[in-house]
């Protein structure tokens, strides 16, 4: 995986894209299966699931970029990689809506 240094440029972003698709798919599946009306306390199962997934994504991305940073030398390519990974982590802001927005309407 770390064989090709090019991969380090994209690692976090690939993670972001995968996470994005998973969240979107989970949301759609959850609505079809009615998980939004199944409540755990005051929140629906679906929301809980999405929030947990979003947090997992953030942690995975943090892990990926931390790993890339730790074993990469301070070459220009590694610097670009660090910037790109940081941007991907920032881009998880896209998922903040799972906290409060309407789930299935």
């Amino acid at each position: 995986m770390s064989g090709n240094p090019l991969f380090g440029l994209f690692a976090a972003w690939i993670g972001w894209a995968g996470g994005f698709l998973i969240l979107y798919a989970l949301q759609a599946t959850g609505c079809r299966a009615g998980w939004d009306s199944h409540m755990i306390g005051a929140v629906s199962t679906l929301r809980l699931l999405l929030v947990a997934t979003a947090l997992t994504i953030v942690f995975v991305l943090l892990g990926l970029s931390w790993k890339a940073r730790r074993n990469g030398p301070a070459s220009p390519l590694a610097r670009i990689g660090a910037l790109a990974n940081g941007a991907a982590i920032l881009a998880t802001l896209c998922f903040a809506g799972v906290l409060w927005l309407g789930m299935c309407a």
């Binding site: 994209f10 972001w16 949301q27 609505c31 809506g97 927005l101």
Partner: peptide
């Protein structure tokens, strides 16, 4: 930045479909 644009640009296709009735949380992504 170019790498970021490349990936982000794949995460916004549904902004052409805001009016088809997709739930708000999905639209928010």
């Amino acid at each position: 930045a170019v790498i970021a644009i490349a990936f982000l640009s794949f995460g916004l296709w549904v902004h052409h479909m805001y009016t088809v009735g997709i739930p708000h949380v999905a639209l928010s992504f």
